[in-house]
């Protein structure tokens, strides 16, 4: 347990190593679902949920299955399998127990099951918190925290982008730049701005 590591995971994942704006993972929902703030928020919440869930599950799979049998090379395929089916399961449970929440997350849950950002965070967890093939103490906690904070970072980027794009729609932009082209330019500017965070290394 190391408090400074906790802090650096939180700040690092939300701002400095933001999954969208620094690592460039999960760009399709970033462009596709960022037209309005409402859906962007739902998407972000769904991503937080899926990332946290899959971080927990893949940690267990890696720790109790892949490591003992020395089959780390199955990491990618088994992670995808596990993430996809566990999200399916979670979707069923939510649909049964909480229809309102299901309507909020709705189409976004199945959309992001095999999103690269989700796989990215699990692979990153394994790379960071299983140094030399064994799990240091509190590695599980770090993993969950990293999954959650990566989702928060995703949500932040989505909200910023959707807010900007809502306003952008009203502006008198050149015909050829309206819509997606302007969104790409905005995305690159935002990314540049977020790169500024890596100036303060924690």
């Amino acid at each position: 347990m190391d408090l400074s590591l906790f802090l650096s995971i939180i700040i690092g994942n939300i701002f400095i190593n933001n999954f969208i704006l620094f690592k460039f993972l999960g760009l399709c929902p970033f462009i596709g679902v960022s037209k309005k703030t409402g859906p962007a928020l739902s998407m972000g919440v769904a991503v937080i949920f899926v990332m946290t869930l899959s971080s927990i599950i893949t940690w267990c799979i890696y720790h109790f299955l892949l490591l003992p049998f020395n089959i780390e090379f199955l990491r990618t395929i088994s992670f995808i399998l596990v993430i996809a089916s566990s999200v399916q399961l979670a979707e069923m449970v939510i649909l049964k127990t909480n229809p309102t929440l299901y309507r909020v997350l709705g189409v976004y849950l199945p959309l992001i099951t095999t999103n690269c950002a989700v796989l990215g965070v699990t692979v990153l967890n394994v790379n960071m918190f299983f140094k030399g093939g064994y799990a240091p103490s509190a590695s599980f906690l770090y993993t969950v925290l990293q999954g959650f904070c990566a989702g928060l970072g995703f949500l932040l980027a989505m909200l910023l982008m959707s807010g900007i794009r809502e306003r952008l729609q009203l502006q008198d932009a050149p015909e050829s730049l309206k819509g997606i082209p302007a969104a790409f330019i905005i995305a690159s500017l935002m990314s540049l701005a977020f790169m500024g965070f890596s100036g303060f290394k924690f």
Binding site: I61, L65, F69, I77, V82, S85, S86, L89, M92
Partner: peptide, 25 residues
């Protein structure tokens, strides 16, 4: 054997759980 069994096992396990859940839920 280990990789084959692990992956099949995982697949089978989740298939069973999902089938069960789709009935139950």
């Amino acid at each position: 054997l280990a990789p084959i069994l692990t992956l099949t096992g995982l697949g089978l396990l989740f298939a069973l759980v999902l089938t069960f859940a789709s009935k139950k839920f």
